[in-house]
Amino acid sequence: MYLPLGLTGSAVLTVTDADTATAVGSGDVPVLATPRVLALAEAATVDAIRSSLPSELTTVGVRVELAHRLPTPVGAVATATAVLEKVDGRALRFSVTVREGEQLIADGIVERAAVDRSRFLARLEGTR
């Protein structure tokens, strides 16, 4: 599998009450929850390779290192950007940033693994 380094993707979220730490159970303040920041970052990684990944493959998250640096209020727009930095066989490494305007909300690394979609789903059937 060949994927060129530097592929970039993004994902945007307007923060709602449902995205807050209070709502998702990760805290008790009405600001963007860290789990939602992570989901936004992962969505950007998926977007980065969406058009370049062979159709029989998908990716799954395997490791995350994320620093959530600033609170983000309801109504704010958070934008995640992911850049493919390394490909090692099936392992993909992305640098990610999440911003509200010019302010850095979070940054880190997301690692994903490319898997054959059919085989991956077939393995699930054997576990049920």
Rank of each mutant, 00 (worst) to 15 (best):
R36G: 04
L84I: 07
T59G: 02
G75F: 14
T79E: 12
T81F: 09
T45K: 01
S55I: 12
S26G: 03
V31Q: 00
L70K: 15
R63W: 04
V31W: 09
L53Y: 00
L53V: 11
T72D: 02
P30Y: 02
V31I: 13
T45S: 11
T81P: 11
T45W: 00
D28A: 10
D88C: 14
V87F: 01
V62D: 05
L40K: 00
T72Y: 10
T58D: 10
D28S: 14
G25M: 05
T58R: 02
T79Q: 07
G89R: 05
V37R: 03
G75V: 03
E42C: 00
L53P: 08
V64P: 06
V46P: 04
V77D: 11
S55N: 14
E42N: 01
L53S: 02
R69N: 09
V60W: 02
A80W: 08
P35E: 05
T45C: 13
V29N: 11
R36D: 03
R69E: 00
A82F: 07
R69V: 10
L84M: 07
R90L: 08
A33Y: 04
A67F: 02
L70N: 10
P30C: 12
V87A: 08
S55K: 06
G27E: 03
P30G: 06
L84R: 11
L38S: 03
E65I: 09
V60Y: 02
S26C: 08
L70Q: 15
D47I: 13
V87H: 10
G75H: 08
A78G: 07
R69Y: 04
E65G: 13
A41N: 00
A76Y: 04
T79W: 07
R90N: 12
V31M: 02
G25C: 05
A76R: 06
G27C: 13
V74P: 01
E65P: 12
V62L: 08
L66D: 00
G75I: 14
T79A: 02
A43S: 09
S26V: 03
H68Q: 12
A67E: 10
K86N: 15
H68V: 09
V77T: 15
V77P: 14
P73G: 15
G27R: 05
L84Y: 10
G25I: 09
V31G: 07
R69A: 13
A67W: 13
T58V: 06
L38Q: 06
R50Y: 06
V64C: 10
P35D: 07
P71W: 13
A33L: 01
V83G: 08
L84D: 00
E42A: 02
V37L: 03
R90S: 11
A39K: 12
A67L: 14
G27K: 01
A39H: 01
R63L: 09
V31S: 05
V77M: 15
L70D: 11
A44K: 03
T79Y: 02
A76P: 06
E85G: 15
A78Y: 02
S51T: 15
V77Q: 15
R63P: 14
